[in-house]
Design a protein around this nucleic acid. Structure first.
Lengths: 131, 131
DNA sequence: TCATGTGTATCACTACAGCAATACACCAGG
DNA sequence: CCTGGTGTATTGCTGTAGTGATACACATGA
């Protein structure tokens, strides 16, 4: 907890730096390596270790806050929120997922894939995420 | 076939014009309103009716061609392809779908949704597409 | 209080996506 | 052959997303 490498940023990857931070921080939280109540590494720490501008990190953190994953604590930093119940209800998160899945499934229909074939793909991917 | 309204383009929507054309043409093909062998409305026709530049339409058509939905016929126009069997194999299309689904499911994991909850959402959406 | 730590508002720079004006190559049909 | 129809390569403009340098407001802790 003292000095993790924070984030692994690859400026050339095509993926925006701030987005990489958002994704990796989100993954850390989802994976439980950052528990509710924990503080995210400070903007300047990350900026130094990843060799990017503090503002870029700040933008990423703001986005995490907008997503409700993290909250700002004056003078301390960004704290991981507890998003289990409350306004991050299961129903709400499902709706969010639905919005993400909808275009993909529309495309599947366009490709002429059957419902069963879609299920197969989904299952394969789910297995990958929870081995 | 003489003069459909072609496409309904909304320049202010935030979605790029060429993308709107790609999506709508794709939907027409998927819905069978444009059958294999049919010609897409010409670049200039669409450009006039949608009040955009022919090049923008051309870019959209090129993208459709790259996706394999349509083929170029010299001197005639763009013809809808038969994408059932052949190089558009089921396996290939599944891989394509997988690429689309992957980020959505990663996000689901990040949201803390279980595999079953993901399945529920998928089923709900599948029902919507094939009522 | 004040030194040091948070995050960030503001402004400016740069690269690139989206779009369009022009000119062009090609083909079908008369 | 020539006319009118395809699609498009080239070039340039413009808005904006991504990033960063600077300076700032606020909170903590000794």
């Amino acid at each position: 907890m003292s000095s993790p490498r924070h984030f692994d940023i690859q400026p050339q990857s095509g993926v925006p730096i701030y987005q990489q931070i958002v994704d990796q921080a989100g993954a850390l939280i989802a994976g439980g390596r950052l528990a509710p109540g924990d503080l995210l590494p400070s903007v300047r720490e990350v900026a130094r270790s990843a060799e990017v501008n503090p503002m870029t990190v700040s933008k990423a953190y703001s986005k995490l806050e907008a997503e409700g994953l993290v909250e700002r604590v004056r003078g301390r930093g960004m704290r991981v929120r507890r998003l289990t119940e409350g306004e991050g209800s299961v129903t709400q998160r499902k709706t969010q997922l639905e919005a993400l899945l909808e275009p993909a499934l529309a495309r599947a229909a366009q490709l002429g894939l059957s419902a069963d074939q879609v299920r197969q793909v989904v299952e394969r991917l789910l297995k990958g995420y929870r081995p």
